[in-house]
Amino acid sequence: MSALLEVREVSHRFGGLHVLKGVSFTVEAGSVTGLIGPNGAGKSTLFNIISGFLTPSVGRIVLLGEDATRLGIQHRSRMGLQRTFQTPQVFRDLTVRENLVAGCHRHGRTGVLEAFLGLPQVRREMRDAAIVADAAIERFDLGPYRDVPAGELPAGRQRMVELARAVVAEPKLLCLDEPSSGLSTAEVQILMQVLRRLNEEGMTILLVSHDMELMEITSKMHALCFGEIIASGSLDAMRASPRVREAYLGT
């Protein structure tokens, strides 16, 4: 297995606040890697750095063997990186189907002028995107909501829309920030099944959560605490680690 993503000695400050202090780890191709950590540990900040919303004060992000530290968000998206947000970011006024069509954006080629002139390839691309979107609607069980504006959906469904939108982009690496928060227990079970299936189909997943139950699907985990990786290993090793227990249960 080769490393799909390498986080190398990444540090980040917000003004005087030292949020990440030399974090390093790798995400192997084909793995489900977990990142746990208490509130304020710096998990979302790390996600923002990986996906290009923030440039780290120090350190590098290597994506598919290429230094991506200073590449734009869209560039990383085209390289095959997708992420979700801790508070789900759906396109509120767009229907679920349109959300997924927007998710397919990177597969298309046509631009403003082609669309304005109504060229046939625009319609063809739209049809292709719609086919992909409909398949994903089926798969993520969003059928009843197909033509409903995504902003009107309950929180749990919005998370599913966001996940589906990331999946239709066919990422090599899928980064999920707290995908289970706000979901019912039953919904979490479904989510875990979906993620397992995606991984079996070859998608590499990086999962951030403080939900230990969700971590059952991971093959390797890292624990982040106050901006530092304090432990790495399998779920069982984590559960056994005194430092993790202290960081988690001690507070």
């Binding site: 996906s51 919303f53 968000i73 869209q74 998206s77 085209r78 997708q82 992420r83 947000f85 970011q89 759906v90 396109f91 509120r92 006024d93 767009l94 349109e98 959300n99 069509v101 927007a102 998710g103 397919c104 954006h105 990177r106 298309g108 046509t110 631009g111 403003v112 082609e114 669309a115 304005f116 002139l117 109504g118 625009v122 691309e125 739209m126 995107a129 902003g151 966001e162 939108r165 990331a166 982009a169």
Partner: peptide, 29 residues
């Protein structure tokens, strides 16, 4: 022509970035 533009994937992309620019950027728009 403007209606065609609005209904195309570019039009959807425009509305997407109006609604949630961060997510639109992640989608590669």
């Amino acid at each position: 022509a403007y209606s065609l533009l609005l209904r195309s994937r570019t039009g959807i992309a425009l509305r997407a970035m109006r609604d949630a620019p961060a997510a639109a950027a992640v989608a590669g728009i």
